[in-house]
Write a protein that binds this DNA or RNA. Structure first.
Lengths: 337, 337
DNA sequence: AGTCGCCATGTGAGCGTTAACATGCTAGGA
DNA sequence: TCCTAGCATGTTAACGCTCACATGGCGACT
């Protein structure tokens, strides 16, 4: 387990080498004020010489703080980028925490309970939950009684809910609707995501709200499951009577939509405009490159950790919204005459 | 921190309630053999009643085992699916370990050192490293002196290297070459990934090996960076003098290749066949759907954890290869006449 | 019938750290 | 000059658990 010696050096070894007591070593390690500079340097030198690392288990035992943050991701591969996870991890580490993760691609109550159980066994100090639907949100609400918790989710908040951070999905969908309205589209349709996903519902809400405020009635929503295949199938049902624009609830479905139109010889955007949501990797190289809504996962992740740490400190944390932006590419244009 | 009481119950609380000593509680928790059945049940009941959870820090302190496995991912968003991470996490948890992760999208020696430092601070018992290039592999080799470690990597192993698990990239590239040869292609070109990636190099090797064994000389390799944009640029250089088939080193680049051909009015596969690698989500809905090589990340992740746990137990672990399969779709066919 | 040995359980120590308190020293004000 | 405040450091006691050993009781062997 160790390179040279037999067992890892402890504080006492460092203390002996530096000619001080273990408590002074502890003070140096924890940046206590009352340590003479010369002593601090001697201790630091001893630490470096021995390759000492503080035992976090012992520390956790006595401080009752594990220094661990838990992250639960419940997104599937089809939905918004997993890059959020990387940002969360990096930000948490930068804030001085260890990070433990659990993926729940297909969340069930049992799985969620197992995950939270594992987290409690580790004495996590706080949890970030990426909650896509009600099962996850429900489990998170229950766990909130026992541990500080923050949700990344576009669910509609209720009183007593844990703090919430999310990209404003409704605003994103409004951006798309506004964009199409501005170009004169009126015969438009939304290909919605699965209704048990908060994101899907929020995008539906934003879409209809913006259109109805403009006095435009869209076609009835189509139903997809986030997958490109479902986008393909849905688009084929449109071929007999084309709208002038299709708003797919995510880029994967938009990809399928593009394929269906390409196969049928429908020009995009000449015949139909197509807009997606997410700006996944490669969306700029679809054929044609996809107009879509970009979410700032970097900002999302940073704010989530900041808010969680603040909440752990007892602060009241307001709900935070990150604004998405529309990225215009070649897949959209004015409606056909 | 706790719902009702003041502080979390400890073993002594359980012991008192069950009318036994703390040591008997410990024995029940650790499945020691010599405990009478009736006693065990009494203890279990007390545990349930109090909602007792064992303190893993105290346990780790005395056993010198943290129960934590570390995972380092170094893939970028362009490269093979991050789904490996989810499989690793799930498998490790099923094996009774906690999991801590660190993402290193742009690995530098400093970052790697920081990550391994953090892992050592947590006293991880073992580490899985997804090593895409030399920086990561080098850091992993160095860390291997201090902690059991397993690499998921297609690097060429050297004596003394940590155990290795990977999908056989070379075999995957050979599958593509063989597939094209069988259909009569001889004017073929490979769009390679960045040469500092092991996967890219292995795919280049397999491609050239299979072709040269068949006596076919491909065009000089083109250079990409895994991104769809780089695939697009590379394909445009081919337009003046088209080969009959392009093998892109990953699906993202293949996506860009398809766009370049589509924009130029080159039919796929009528004019050129295109083959990718990875079978990313959505590859079946490219236009046309992409022939590609699928890697079994599920098996990869499972074997990685199995092998790591075996290695932690002191077993000698041989290098393991997972076989990829070719998935034929509409983007490839016989060469143009 | 006596003793050996196994089984079920209890007792005490210690893992490496931090918190609380104790100590000795230096300097400044009365 | 003495007393006191405050700084630098040391000493001791937990934290909650497992390990090693101690103990008492009961059955099986001679």
């Amino acid at each position: 387990m160790v390179a040279n010696g037999r067992t890892r050096p402890g504080m006492n070894d460092v203390a002996r080498l530096a000619g001080v007591s273990h408590q002074t070593v502890s003070r140096v390690l924890n940046d206590h004020p009352n340590v003479r500079e010369s002593t601090r340097e001697r201790v630091l030198a001893a630490i470096a010489e021995l390759g000492y690392r503080r035992n976090s288990a012992a520390r956790a035992l006595v401080t009752h703080r594990s220094g661990i943050l838990g992250i639960i991701t419940s997104g599937s591969v089809h939905s918004g980028p997993a890059s959020t996870l990387a940002v969360l991890e990096r930000t948490a580490r930068a804030a001085g925490y260890f990070v433990t993760v659990a993926a729940a691609p297909h969340p069930t109550p049992e799985l969620m309970q197992e995950i939270f159980g594992s987290f409690m066994d580790q004495s996590v100090e706080g949890v970030v939950v990426i909650a896509q639907g009600d099962e996850v949100a429900g489990a998170a609400r229950a766990a909130f009684a026992e541990v500080p918790l923050l949700m990344i989710s576009s669910l509609t908040p209720e009183p007593g809910d844990p703090p919430l951070v999310c990209v404003d999905q409704e605003a994103g969908a409004r951006l798309v609707a506004r964009y199409l309205l501005d170009r004169g589209h009126t015969d438009v349709v939304h290909l919605a995501g699965p209704p048990d996903w908060f994101d899907a519902r929020a995008r539906v809400r934003g879409w209809h709200a913006e259109l109805s405020e403009a006095g435009v009635a869209p076609r009835p929503d189509l139903a997809g499951d986030w997958s490109a295949g479902s986008g393909y199938e849905a688009a084929r049902t449109l071929l007999a009577d084309l709208p002038t624009a299709v708003f797919a609830a995510n880029d994967q479905m938009a990809l399928g939509v593009l394929r269906a139109f390409a196969e049928a010889g429908v020009a995009v955007p000449g015949g139909v405009s197509v807009v997606g949501f997410d700006d996944i990797v490669g969306a700029d190289n679809f054929f044609p490159p996809l107009t879509t809504v970009r979410q700032d996962f970097e900002a999302l992740g940073r704010r989530a950790i900041d808010a969680l740490v603040a909440a752990m400190g007892g602060a009241a944390v307001p709900r935070e919204l990150v604004e998405p932006v529309l990225v215009e590419r070649a897949s959209s244009g004015p409606p056909r005459p």
